[in-house]
């Protein structure tokens, strides 16, 4: 039987842990609020961009710009898989899920994959296991800016245009709600025309048949529009992942706080029982001593 002092120490230790998890939960909650605000603000742009691009892609031939052209699969084809994980742990299954999702993609892919790792946890996992890694981006979630997305997009675009890879895929946690995150595998390059979702007035017959007027020439517009689109997609993935991270962390820390409260109460109960047993024993000793006199 553990002694009273040991039990008291354990209760104190668990209380300390609880304080930490509670504080972390609160920090995550306030960061989550900011992160969701950012993603809500960034969504309209990303959505409109996607819509414009979809209606453009429906009208133009895929040979207009290399980003639109699907390359024929050859023996040397490679895929770049950009895995967006968190920089930190203590967030439940957040990192595990992305890594698992990426792993599944890699093993089921027909061509060999190269990795682009965003976030420390992904690097720790994949870096150690001898995967071919094209680039790493670490510590950008502390202060996420559009420029960070630009850097990642630049790396991906360079690898794609130089022919090093023929396809770029993004794997990240999508922020659905505070309680749920979903691992998403999105094709970044080449830009897929099947994203065309005609809705509302655009769905009216004949509307999409008319070709655009371009000002300036289409090549010039695509030269700017498509790289921008890639950047925006990456930026959105980073923001989603960031918000999802804090949501996951908040839930994980909430659970941890609850668990430690449970542990404290069961330990306290046990401690009281031990103490009571000791007192009872002492009384019996005293009483039986008195009777013996």
């Amino acid at each position: 039987m553990p002694s009273l002092i040991d039990l008291r120490r354990r209760v104190r230790a668990v209380k300390n842990t609880q304080q930490i998890t509670k504080a972390m939960k609160m920090v995550a909650a306030s960061k989550l609020r900011r992160a969701t605000e950012r993603i809500m603000n960034a969504r309209p742009y990303a959505v409109q961009m996607q819509r414009v691009l979809a209606s453009v892609a429906a009208r133009v031939d895929s040979s207009v710009h290399p980003f639109l052209a699907v390359r024929e699969r050859t023996a040397t084809s490679r895929t770049l898989v950009i895995v967006v994980t968190g920089d930190k742990g203590l967030c439940g299954s957040f990192n595990t899920n992305v890594i698992k999702g990426a792993g599944q993609y890699i093993t089921s892919a027909t061509e060999p994959c190269t990795l682009g790792l965003v976030g420390r946890k992904g690097r720790e996992f994949f870096g150690r296991r001898g995967f071919s890694v094209l680039f790493e981006q670490i510590g950008i979630f502390q202060k996420l800016k559009f420029d960070d997305a630009k850097v990642v997009a630049r790396l991906a675009v360079d690898a794609f245009t130089s022919g090093e890879v023929d396809k770029v895929v993004l794997v990240f946690n999508e922020f659905k709600s505070v309680m749920s995150q979903r691992v998403v595998v999105d094709q970044l390059l080449p830009i897929e025309p099947h994203e065309v979702v005609l809705e509302g007035p655009a769905a009216k017959a004949g509307d999409s048949q008319v070709d655009y007027l371009y000002e300036p020439a289409p090549e010039k517009i695509f030269e700017q529009l498509l790289p921008r689109y890639v950047e925006v997609q990456v930026y959105r993935a980073l923001l989603e992942s960031n918000a999802a991270f804090f949501a996951a962390q908040m839930t994980a820390m909430d659970t941890a706080t609850k668990n430690s409260a449970e542990m404290i109460s069961s330990l306290t109960l046990y401690m009281n029982k031990v103490r009571q047993a000791a007192i009872t024993r002492e009384i019996i000793e005293v009483v039986s001593g008195a009777q013996a006199l």
Partner: peptide, 13 residues
């Protein structure tokens, strides 16, 4: 450039 309702589809920088 100005745009009035019924403008032909246009993509511009």
């Amino acid at each position: 450039f100005g745009v009035l309702p019924g403008h032909t589809p246009l993509l511009a920088l």
